[in-house]
Design a binder for these strands. Structure first.
Lengths: 126, 126
DNA sequence: AAGTGATTGCTCAACAATGAACATTGCATC
DNA sequence: GATGCAATGTTCATTGTTGAGCAATCACTT
């Protein structure tokens, strides 16, 4: 489900595309931190996006810093990002509800019903 | 952050311990589906939990089914599960808020402000 | 200039996890 | 019984990901 590699990777790709559309001059480390992956993973991801033709490498504007790149969305990348938005939002809303339910269940479990003098420490078994 | 291998694995371990405490006779496939990992991953995880001494293999009750096992929490496993609960809940609540913020941001982006006659289709760039 | 430290993109071994198989066992219908 | 079918735990090649480190470049001080 949530751990499916394909969807998880799609999430990362979408987030990276979204971030780069706003700011194409983000460094790989900034991207990694913003998305929540490792630095090597960001590099890996960017290569995949370039391979797919969704982004291309441009010139960094400030001071001709030869180290840095700018990762610019191609038209195909912009289209892909738009196409991904709906699925991403839908998935995240489902995750949101699931997370809410899990948290609530856990809270209930931690705070047993105090309204009657029920025996404590006794979890109800199925 | 969220993709950190250690925390992600801790989440899986906690969920598995929690599920097994309620029902020790769950199959690896049921566990996998409930937790959101692959079948092989469940096997992998169970081995790790046995290695840690948190669960032990017991006998399946019904019909002496030689295929199935029962995965019973050891006292150490019960303690570990309790110790993990707090951290897990705290982390999930943080994830919950982050998810909420991300969804809201995405919704705002999809539905541009309609309250004045602003030009449409024009996302505000930084 | 020269040196020092910080930051960049990048590489790589180790590990984690997947997805698809596998052998074994139980259940059912013939 | 025998035969087919579904479900179990298990294995394994492939792939994704991490974390630490690399050379190159920039900024800054001497």
């Amino acid at each position: 489900m949530a751990g499916s590699r394909k969807t998880s990777q799609e999430d990362v790709h979408f987030r990276v595309l979204r971030l780069l559309e706003e700011n194409p001059e983000m460094s790989q480390r900034d991207l990694a931190q913003a998305v929540g992956i490792s630095v090597g993973g960001a590099h890996y991801c960017l290569n995949a996006l370039i391979e797919k033709g969704l982004i291309k490498i441009g010139n960094f504007s400030a001071a001709r810093d030869k180290r840095r790149y700018a990762y610019i969305l191609t038209p195909k990348g912009i289209a892909e990002k738009s196409a991904l938005t709906g699925r991403f939002l839908k998935r995240k809303m489902a995750e949101y509800e699931a997370l809410k339910a899990e948290i609530d269940a856990l809270k209930v479990e931690l705070e047993p019903t105090m309204d009657d003098s029920a025996p404590r420490k006794q979890a109800q078994q199925k």
